[in-house]
Write a protein that binds this DNA or RNA. Sequence first.
RNA 1: GGGCCCAUGGCCUAGUCUGGAUAUGGCGACGGCCUCCUAAGCCGUAGGUCGGGGGUUCGAAUCCCCCUGGGCCCGCCA
Length: 580
Amino acid sequence: MRRYSGISSHSPGDNIFKFPYLPPSMGPLERYRKRAEEDIARVLRSWGVEIDVCVEEARPGFGDLTFRCFPLARALRDRPDSIAYRLCEELRPEGFERVEAVGGYVNFHLNRRAFTADVLREALNETLFYFPPRGRRVVVEHTSANPTGPLHVGRGRNPILGDTIARMLRAVGYDVVTHYYVNDMGKQAAVLMWGVERYGVEASGKWDHVYVEAYQRAYEGYDEDEVAELLRKYEEGDEEVSRKVKTVLSRVLEGIGETLASINVRVDRYVWESDVVRSEYMRRAMEVLGKLAEVDNGALYVSLDKLGIRSEKDRIYITRSDGTTLYPARDVAYHLMKSDEGDVLIDVLGEDHKLHGAFIKAVVEGATDVIVEPVFYSFVRLPEGRMSTRRGAVVYLDDLIEEAVERAAEEVRKRRGDMDPDELMEIARKVGISAVRYNVLKVQNEKPMVFRWEEALNFEGDSAPYVQYTYARASSILRNYEGEISTEPPSEVHPSEWALVKAMASYRSVVEAAAEKRSPHLVARYARDMADAFNAFYRDCPVLQAGGPARAYRVAIVTAYRKTMERIFDIIGVEKTEKM
RNA sequence: GGGCCCAUGGCCUAGUCUGGAUAUGGCGACGGCCUCCUAAGCCGUAGGUCGGGGGUUCGAAUCCCCCUGGGCCCGCCA
């Protein structure tokens, strides 16, 4: 098992520190950690040392919790291993079997039977997963792709990351609402409209795929003036143009929405740029920006230097010479709108928006008391280079999803050929879309990714199906069991049982750390580690064949595992399946 | 040219924020395991100058500086 540093009860990032009015929410591991920390603090105080004691989860083979003595060496003028030894002499922490000094560490060993019973009980009654409401609202804006065609995997990380960040935050007690910002006033939208007018479209299937052809053709050569004219008319609210644009973009958006829904991505609200521009927020945005802006030939710009942003580019223009607003200004307005809905505004943005993100953050935080937090990801590239809708060098998300589900169906058929076809397809859908999500989530946001079919469709090893498979195994055991279950280990806890119990106990610290760091890959990694631990347990500890009271107890472990995995699946948007 | 991001075995990747006890897993390769709760699984073997060079430190994949390679940005586009 891996060790999770998590968040200690004393780290500055801790929500108890930030929101002191909330009741402390502690799982079993946090309770023991706190006891260990308090006991160490007690001893250190008696030695005249007053520090923030931070006990960590130990790595395997070194007990369960650990305290590093190295940082104390200077203050105590003693060697770390000697400090550890002296500490052990005086420590009397409650609930631990033993405490020992190894090297410069103090290692705490939990009472395994008692801890196991605690974890199982709290997993079964679900208090293990409960976080009290924080009274903080978060708006997560993600995807926000120009509605000119289908989503492609180049930006495919955006919806999956954004949706998972929203789910993580909900899981730890935030009120979360997700937004999709619809860029209807941009040039791209106008080019699409120009293409539609010029070439028309043939309705055949999903609208996003239908319209993208007109968009691509338009890009081969459009009339600059006519596009500008369209843009101007739309911005002025010309009735006929507005109606046409809204119809077309809504249809494309409908297609995009279907794609999102198919991979369990939920968008609570679509906010149209044109609505923002015509709202009170636009006026307020210009007021805010007016205080920062300078004039160049009639156009307004904000100098980045003034905002404390280091960049070669020295200014960001917010209006044209003719007075019409530019994207940065409109986005400030949109963020002012969001600031009414949330205390923290998270924007999931491609790496090309880094400067823009810094600009918005500086301006909006200067004008309101909300926190703006851009989360960046790097594009998924093709082996031959960047994806581009215009050039047609793309893999559409829809095609990836379809391929994944088809491949999953083949795999299920191989193993469960006798299964009812509807059930089989349902399992294939769950496996396929989960695989797509997982393969994106398992890699850190800012790592560059190259799209390769064989990796995107990976169904074994570090993959969703691997993790789902353990859930199916657990389900299979429970299907074949009838009777009582017991959370009390009847005898010594088996090492594989222990590893699994500890993995479950990490739920709180892992999920909380992932949420606070906006790092979905930590939860994907955790799902994998849980599955590893379950597979070891499955290998070493027969459940249904176990004799005596061990059976009811191991069934409790399996039940707790399933419940924990359901929570984890829910956070990363992976589907559970009882058979596969 | 400047700014930001990335660099870990053949390939992909964790750990980097918050420096410490044997650098995490997976894919691929090789060798094993289905009369036994689902083999999308399990066990074992081989494979590592943590991009390079300096520095800080008792201790560096982790912090600082320089360099190299790749990505992104540098528009009165969005």
